[in-house]
Simulated assay, not measured.
Amino acid sequence: MIIILNESANDEQVDHVVAKVAELGLDTTVSKGSFRTVIGVIGDESLIQPDQLEAIPGVAQVVPVMPAYKLASREAHPKASTIEVGSGKVSPVKIGGGYLAMIAGPCAVESAERMDAIASSIRDSGANILRGGAFKPRTSPYSFQGLAEEGLEILRDTGDRYGMPVVTEVVDPRLVDLVCQYTDMIQLGARNMQNFVLLTEVGKTDKPVLLKRGMSATIKDLLMSAEYIMAQGNSNVVLCERGIKSFDPATRNLFDIAAVPQIQELSHLPIIVDPSHATGRPELIPPCALAGVAAGADGVHIEVHNKPEDAMSDGPQALLPEQYAEVMVQIRKVAEVMGKQISKPAAATV
C-alpha cells in the first residue's frame, strides 16, 4: 500500500501517519521528494482501512497495491479456475480451463411440455446446461413472476431426463435452501449483483454460482460481489458479462466484449457471455456469441424458446431452436480455433 501526502504536509503529519500504521503492526518506508512525500506500507494490507488513513490531515490518497478482491484475484490464484456443474443423474460439465459452458433455455419455466420440447432441441444442438427461471424479478409487479417451486420441479425433472445440469435464479435469501434442493447451479441476476445479503447466503452453499454483472456495475464491482460469495467459503463462481446500460437505445444494453479479456487478466474465475440480455435482438445474438468466444469467454448463455410470441418473459430476445442449432455450428468452429472444447451432457433417458 502507498500513502501519498499533500504537498503542504509537514513533518508532524508524516510522523502521525507512520505512527498510525505502526499501531496496526506494519512497517513503513518514507520517501520525501521535491514536491510530495510518499509512505510505503510493508505488511498485510487487509489490516488497514484506507478510508481511515485518508481522514488523517495531510493525506491526499491511499493506493492499495493488492486488489480488494483478494480471493477472486489472479494474485491469489495465478492459474485459471475450472468449475464443475452437475452431479447425481447428470454428468458434471466443466467451465473454464479450456472448457466451454453452453447454457440455453427459456427465460422462464412455463410448462413441463414446453420445457421438454426446448430441452430436447437444444441438447441435440450441443447445449450442455439447461436454464429456466422459476422466480422472475420483473420491472413491473404485474408481470409474470414465475411458477416458483412448481417451476423448480419441472426444471429438475427435465434436466434429469436429458442428462443436463440445470441453472436457475434465486431472488430472495429466504429461498436459497429451496432452490438448492433442485438446481445444480445458482444464478444471481444483474438486479441482485449487489444484494449483499443474498450474496452472503449463496456463499454459504456448496452450489456453483453464476454471477451476472449489474446493469451499471464496473468490473471491480462485479469482482467485489464475487468476493462476497468466496469470502463465505464458496469458490465456485462463474462470472457473466450480460451488457451494461448505455445512452444508445439501439440495443437493450451495451455488450462490453472488452470485459472478457480484462476480467481474465484480473481474475482466475471463469467468465461467460450472455448476448441475449446484452443485445435484446435475436439477429445480433449469433455474431455477439461468436465474438464472445473469440475474445476468450468460457461459455455462452443464450435464451431459446420454441414459440417466442407466446413466451411469458423476454420472448422478443429468444432464438428459435433452429436458430440456436445454426449458431452452435459456428461456435464449434470458433472454439476449435481458440483451442477450447464443449463438454457433452450425460446420456438422455428419453
Rank of each mutant, 00 (worst) to 15 (best):
T82K: 06
Q49R: 15
Q181A: 14
P173D: 02
E153R: 15
G159A: 06
I118R: 03
V62P: 09
F247T: 14
L239K: 00
T82F: 03
Q262Y: 08
V21Q: 07
G97D: 11
K79M: 07
D221C: 01
F35A: 13
D248P: 08
A217W: 04
H301V: 11
L320A: 14
R36P: 04
D124N: 12
P137W: 01
V17S: 06
T349C: 15
P141N: 00
Q264P: 06
S73G: 06
L71V: 05
A148G: 13
I229D: 00
V273K: 05
E23I: 12
L210F: 07
V21R: 11
R131D: 06
E169I: 01
G214W: 10
V327I: 05
G339Q: 03
L266H: 09
Q145W: 10
V166C: 11
H16I: 14
Q194G: 01
R242D: 01
R74N: 06
E303I: 03
L100C: 09
V260F: 00
I118T: 05
S246V: 06
L175C: 11
A117T: 08
S216H: 14
V179Q: 08
E150R: 12
K70M: 15
G292A: 05
V93Y: 05
M66E: 15
G132F: 06
M328C: 15
P141I: 04
P64A: 13
K32H: 02
C107H: 10
T183I: 10
P57T: 14
G151I: 02
D274C: 03
H268T: 06
P261L: 01
A318S: 14
G151L: 06
A289K: 01
A108T: 08
C180L: 01
V337W: 14
P287E: 10
A55W: 03
G292E: 06
Q341L: 11
A19Y: 15
R191D: 05
P78F: 10
G233H: 05
V209N: 10
P270T: 07
G40K: 04
V17T: 09
P57L: 07
V237W: 00
P92H: 04
R281Q: 14
E84W: 04
E54K: 06
L26Y: 11
F247R: 09
I103W: 00
D256R: 09
C288K: 08
A231K: 11
V337S: 15
G133T: 10
K136L: 09
L71M: 07
P141A: 03
R174G: 14
M312Q: 12
E309D: 15
P321N: 07
F144P: 03
A294W: 08
A108D: 08
P141L: 00
R114D: 09
L5M: 02
S8E: 11
P208N: 02
V329F: 07
H268M: 02
I285M: 03
K245M: 12
G296P: 13
Y228E: 00
H277N: 02
I331K: 05
G299A: 01
P282N: 09
M215G: 07
A9R: 08
A112C: 10
V337H: 13
A76C: 11
G280P: 10
I219D: 09
S276V: 03
S111G: 07
V30W: 04
M312W: 11
V38E: 11
I129F: 02
M115A: 14
I342Q: 14
H268P: 00
A311R: 04
M164L: 13
L319R: 08
E12I: 15
D172L: 12
V65I: 13
E7G: 01
E110L: 08
